[in-house]
Simulated scan of single mutants.
Amino acid sequence: MTAVQNRTPRPAAQLPPRERLSRWANKNRKWLFAGPSMAFVALLLVIPLAWTLVLSLTDSKRSVRRPFDFIGLENYVEALTDTERFWPSVGRTLAFTGGALFFELILGMIIALLLWKPFRGQGLVRTIVLLPLVATPVAVGMMWRLLFEPNIGFVNEFLSWFGIPAQPWLADPNTSLATLTFVDIWQWTPMVALILLAGLTGLSEEPQEAARMDGANAWQRFWYVTVPLMRPVIIAAVLLRGIDALKTFDILYATKGKGGGAFHDVETLNVYAYGLSFDYNEYGLASAVLILFFLMILAIIWVIQMQRKATS
């Protein structure tokens, strides 16, 4: 009876350089494959953000070639004390994002539930539901601008069939933000529905069957079984769509133009910062607004993550 001795690997210091390099590469292959892409993305994020931060501390204006001086936090103080443009823009940004996200989640869940179970013609229905995502936001904005036109738009023409007078949907400062929130809901609800449908498809049937055998009705199964199981997917949809809605610019600018309209009625932080940069050439102040906007997005993400950990 012969004893079999286990061969112990040789120490790395005793290996030839080529074999030592091969062992190191095999051990760190995940970083070697992902490293170039991660470095590229980091450069795309870090360099513009760092330059924006530098500009926010200067009096840069009028021309990008004009020498500028560092003025510390003066731009931040000016922005935070501006009750005519900055804080109303913050309010519109939060109102637009909150309203769009609320209805997109509800409508997206309804659509996902309707498409969850197989039925005849399901592929055609899914294609039709996803059609709003095909067009670019600028094209969508111009299309709805024509549809909401007070005199020749189809929306007012359709309402006239029921005796409802024409409405100044985008011309009235009191209705323009809500109207564009509706446009955003129309375009992006399918994306939320797609995310939620992917989550529903991955759910097990066993909890639903157990609840059904216990006598739970459809609403009880949805609220007490489906929603808790779907919570991680719902939070992911909120994060993805919420951040995207906060950054909305193209639809607002395509329909209302500079300053979010003559009365700044749809001027969000994105539109405000764009106007400061390209209309008034206030690069330092615009950079400060963008840094504050970035910090606001980080704070919202942190709150959502803390809420997710508290409920998990």
Results as ranks from 00 to 15, higher is better:
Thr2Leu: 14
Ala3Lys: 08
Val4Lys: 15
Arg7Tyr: 10
Pro11Arg: 00
Gln14Arg: 02
Gln14Met: 09
Pro17Ile: 00
Arg18Asn: 05
Leu21Phe: 06
Ser22Ala: 04
Ser22Gln: 09
Ala25Asp: 03
Asn26Val: 09
Trp31His: 03
Trp31Arg: 01
Trp31Gly: 03
Trp31Ile: 04
Ala39His: 02
Leu43Arg: 02
Leu45His: 08
Val46His: 00
Ile47Phe: 07
Leu49Lys: 09
Leu53Phe: 10
Val54Asp: 08
Val54Ser: 08
Arg62Asn: 13
Val64Ile: 12
Val64Asn: 14
Arg66Cys: 08
Asp69Met: 11
Val77Asn: 09
Ala79Asp: 05
Thr83Cys: 05
Glu84Trp: 14
Pro88Glu: 08
Gly91Asn: 09
Leu94Phe: 06
Ala95Met: 07
Phe96Cys: 08
Phe96Glu: 06
Thr97Leu: 08
Gly99His: 09
Phe102Ile: 15
Glu104Arg: 12
Ile106Lys: 06
Ile106Ser: 13
Ala112Cys: 05
Leu113Thr: 14
Pro118Lys: 05
Pro118Gly: 03
Pro118Phe: 04
Phe119Lys: 03
Leu124Asn: 04
Arg126Ser: 01
Arg126Ala: 00
Thr127Asn: 02
Val129Gly: 02
Val129Gln: 01
Leu130Asp: 10
Leu131Met: 03
Leu131Thr: 10
Leu133Lys: 03
Val134His: 13
Thr136Arg: 00
Pro137Asn: 07
Met143Ile: 07
Leu147Glu: 03
Ile152Gly: 00
Gly153Leu: 01
Gly153Cys: 05
Phe154Asn: 06
Phe154Leu: 10
Val155Thr: 05
Leu159Ile: 11
Ser160Met: 05
Gly163Val: 14
Gly163Tyr: 08
Ile164Leu: 13
Pro165Ala: 04
Gln167Met: 12
Pro168Gly: 11
Pro168Met: 14
Leu180Gln: 07
Leu180Gly: 15
Phe182Asn: 13
Asp184Arg: 10
Thr189Cys: 01
Thr189His: 00
Met191His: 12
Val192Pro: 13
Leu203Asn: 05
Glu206Tyr: 12
Glu206Ile: 01
Gln208Ala: 06
Gln208Pro: 15
Glu209Leu: 13
Arg212Tyr: 11
Met213Phe: 07
Met213Gly: 05
Ala218Gln: 11
Trp219Cys: 06
Gln220Gly: 01
Gln220Val: 11
Val225Tyr: 15
Val227His: 08
Pro228His: 10
Leu229Phe: 14
Val233Arg: 15
Ala236Gln: 11
Ala237Phe: 02
Val238Trp: 06
Leu239Tyr: 08
Leu239Trp: 10
Leu239Thr: 15
Gly242Lys: 11
Ala245Gln: 11
Ala245Phe: 09
Thr248Val: 15
Thr248Gly: 01
Thr248Asn: 02
Ile251Arg: 00
Leu252Glu: 02
Gly257Asp: 04
Lys258Asp: 12
Asp265Lys: 05
Val266Ala: 13
Val266Thr: 06
Thr268Arg: 03
Asn270Glu: 09
Asn270Ser: 12
Val271Asn: 02
Val271Pro: 11
Glu282Thr: 13
Tyr283Ser: 04
Leu285Ser: 03
Val289Ala: 04
Phe293Glu: 05
Leu298Tyr: 00
Leu298Arg: 01
Ala299Gly: 06
Ala299Asp: 05
Ala299Val: 15
Ile301Arg: 03
Trp302Lys: 06
Trp302Gln: 04
Val303Ser: 13
Arg308Met: 04
Arg308Leu: 04
Arg308Cys: 09
Ser312Gly: 15
